[in-house]
């Protein structure tokens, strides 16, 4: 019973924190640019606001437009059930491992791309094409990173990886782990659609990737798609901070230590969010056909990490 409660708690922490991370990134960027910017809680208000608006759909659209937003939202939410915040007992850990996680996330991307096509407009297909290309190119590096960590911890089960990385695996293989984390950073940027891969703020047809697909979405559909993208970003940051670089405080002895663990998790996620936001400000978005170079660079990093670990 207690494990179930803890698992639920972790699940809801990840869900609850995700709009905040998005808000925090936005706020950081605004502050550094010299403007005040919207409140860090603005994404929560946005979701509530969008939920209350009616949906406008094209008369060319089909039932894909109705079900796709639900799937896009529910897929990262399910994956959030895999991830530990402070304890290795998670809600969904019985039903899949880290390889399955990659493919579950791909299911969301698949339906998001279909949603782009469903309106019959010119932007949707453009966005889908770009998104699928970027997602495909990020995949090999992602699997390579996952293989490295899976071999180091001798398991693909996320909870097991969490447990053994929390030991001293990270310090046993510092070279391999560092390079793998660098590769994972590239994958995170690609999957979460941040600068230098994709600019989440723009609506210019030359540059937008993710935004082009959801251009025709409105009301509850847009809210669901936004939830999906927030949670997905949080998932990648959690993977980064909690699974593959578990420097932090994990103790489930009593309520105070749990509280403190959650607090540390919160701090780590905020730090990562701020780092990514600062990275976004200092880098220019890559030209679309340079993205393959960036992804390939990530892949080579992952490859070196694998090679230094295995050989």
């Amino acid at each position: 019973m207690q494990t179930l409660l803890m698992a639920l708690l972790q699940f809801f922490i990840i869900l609850g924190i995700s709009p905040f991370i998005a808000g925090l990134m936005q706020k950081t960027k605004s502050l550094i640019r010299g403007s005040i910017g919207p409140s860090v809680f603005q994404p929560y208000f946005n979701i509530v606001k969008l939920m209350k608006k009616e949906v406008v759909l094209s008369n060319q659209s089909s039932y894909i437009s109705i079900i796709a937003p639900y799937i896009v939202a529910v897929v990262p939410i399910t994956v959030a059930g895999f991830l530990p915040v402070f304890d290795s007992n998670t809600l969904m850990s019985f039903s899949g491992d880290i390889i399955a996680m990659v493919y579950i996330l791909a299911l969301g991307t698949f339906f998001l791309a279909l949603f782009g096509f469903d309106q019959g407009s010119s932007f949707g297909g453009l966005g889908s094409s770009r998104e699928m290309t970027v997602a495909s190119l990020a995949e090999p590096a992602f699997i390579m990173v996952i293989f490295t960590f899976a071999l180091q911890s001798n398991s693909t089960n996320i909870s097991h990886i969490f447990d053994s990385m929390r030991g001293d695996i990270f310090f046993n293989y510092p070279v391999s782990s560092t390079l793998a984390l660098m590769a994972l950073y590239f994958v995170t940027l690609a999957e979460a659609g941040r600068i230098p891969i994709d600019n989440p703020e723009t609506h210019l047809e030359l540059t937008m990737i993710h935004e082009a697909m959801i251009l025709d979405a409105s009301g509850r559909n847009l809210a669901l798609l936004e939830i999906g993208s927030f949670v997905k970003t949080t998932i990648f940051l959690t993977l980064f901070s909690n699974i593959f670089m578990p420097l932090g405080f994990y103790d489930t002895n009593n309520i105070w230590t749990i509280g403190f663990s959650i607090f540390i998790y919160f701090i780590k996620m905020s730090t990562l969010g701020v780092i990514i936001a600062i990275g976004e400000l200092t880098l220019a978005k890559l030209r679309y056909f340079r993205i393959s170079d960036a992804m390939m660079f990530g892949f080579v990093l992952a490859l070196i990490s694998m090679v230094t670990y295995r050989l």
Binding site: A106, A113, L114, M132, T133, S136, P140, F147
Partner: peptide, 30 residues
């Protein structure tokens, strides 16, 4: 073998892209 696995990952991702294309172009839109 990890290299082959990442080739398999690329294959899977491309297959998904390809069928997004098939469904999107032939069944969706107008």
């Amino acid at each position: 073998v990890p290299l082959f696995a990442s080739m398999l990952a690329l294959t899977g991702a491309f297959a998904a892209a390809c069928f997004v294309k098939v469904i999107g172009i032939s069944f969706l839109g107008s």
